[in-house]
Design a protein around this nucleic acid. Sequence first.
DNA 1: GCTTCTAGAATGGTCTAATATTTATATTAT
DNA 2: ATAATATAAATATTAGACCATTCTAGAAGC
Lengths: 245, 245
Amino acid sequence: MATIFNPIKQARVSDGVFHQIKHSILLGHFKAGGRLPSERELAEEFRVSRMAIREALRALELSGFIEIRQGINGGGFVVDLTFEQLGNAFLDLFLANKISIPEMLQVRLLIEPEVAGLAALNVNTDFKQRLNEAVELEELPPISLFKDVEIKQNFHFILAEMSGNRFLEAIVRSLLKLTRNLVLAVDDGPRFIHPAGMHRKVVEAVLSGSPEEARGAMKRHTLEFGQKLIELEIAYREKMALLPF
Amino acid sequence: MATIFNPIKQARVSDGVFHQIKHSILLGHFKAGGRLPSERELAEEFRVSRMAIREALRALELSGFIEIRQGINGGGFVVDLTFEQLGNAFLDLFLANKISIPEMLQVRLLIEPEVAGLAALNVNTDFKQRLNEAVELEELPPISLFKDVEIKQNFHFILAEMSGNRFLEAIVRSLLKLTRNLVLAVDDGPRFIHPAGMHRKVVEAVLSGSPEEARGAMKRHTLEFGQKLIELEIAYREKMALLPF
DNA sequence: GCTTCTAGAATGGTCTAATATTTATATTAT
DNA sequence: ATAATATAAATATTAGACCATTCTAGAAGC
């Protein structure tokens, strides 16, 4: 039979609500920080039950469009969309074994040098100060693995911001989230040593304003650090495989 | 005040259920294709109401871990995680104006040539045949814009698969999803003409087995096509700005 | 006047129970 | 045999009650 007709998509009630509200937010009917009507009001307006509204609001929350607060003056508050959901999606793919660390590294080796190169073209006094502060913080004695990772990653975040490309920034943030989770999940203290001063050379190259030098320095850093990550992934997958059922 | 204490996270019941089931799936307790217990059974096992279970299952569905089917033999079926959610996250960021087409193009210009280069190293008879079929299909008279875009993008999907890097493949799929949505949303027939034969040179370069040639050919193609996309974004944002409230 | 406590009200969170809808399968009628 | 129908099991939806949380305003105490 010729494919003339399209199947009726038996949409759920909450899906309709979800899309209408999402569309409304994207169109700017509700600004960031603004509050949606209460569940009871929405239920009346959409002529559906509160549960349907609840499902839609939960979906909006999971998608990163709103934040739900309880209590009087509570409700759904529109928030500015961040790169959070993107990072979660990448993380899930890694957890489900759909992407591996070597694959991620190959991408990182492509992205990070380019980010550093672009950053070198956008140096200004503010960025310069932030980069210098970041590497100085790195060289203080570490408080905890968690804090240590946070401080070391800050350097990459600043460069990503400097690149001036939010798409690249989004990818970098996702890559780093993946890395952070891996490091913290294994928590293999002695083995995981991100040596202090590792970033110093990259910062110098970026601040010199030369894209070529910045790319080269970042490439060397990524390669060096990548080796540690590959070891970490092996430890991680082993740890997971041995987990009690 | 020193940050000694951590805030109590007043977790929702459904969140606990969500994480337990998700963890369970990741650990392989339920294989892809397998069915979770019914809502009523889960409610009994977790000692919570069916509503809490429902919310958790909906969240799992939204995250791409399960598919919920209705009717007898229905329920939550575990599915293999795909790149779908990732693409949705990127799309939302674009819709919310958090990333622009020029930014995306800069990334595409970085990714696609690399993909083509890697693909050139992984040519085999199967891939060769699929690529040739793809470009031949492209040169038939177009049926609809929708079909046309689908056929033209197929070429990129094959190359992404050939790259052997699923992370790169994920990014390419996201980039293409964004592109597809933009093209279809504007649906600016006469302006949007992806000329037939545009991919032919890239295919030749890839099949020649030379990464350098493949990179170069893809770079030229991306640059050429990118110009059209920039025009499209302007048309798109204008269209959106004029939408009735 | 200032702080602290308390009560009220609005809101999301959860539960229960009933009904509707969907769908695969078994049964029955032709 | 084939088509129509009934059955059963599961999700989808609704309604209504009650719980938990949180802000606000006013009362109480100092």
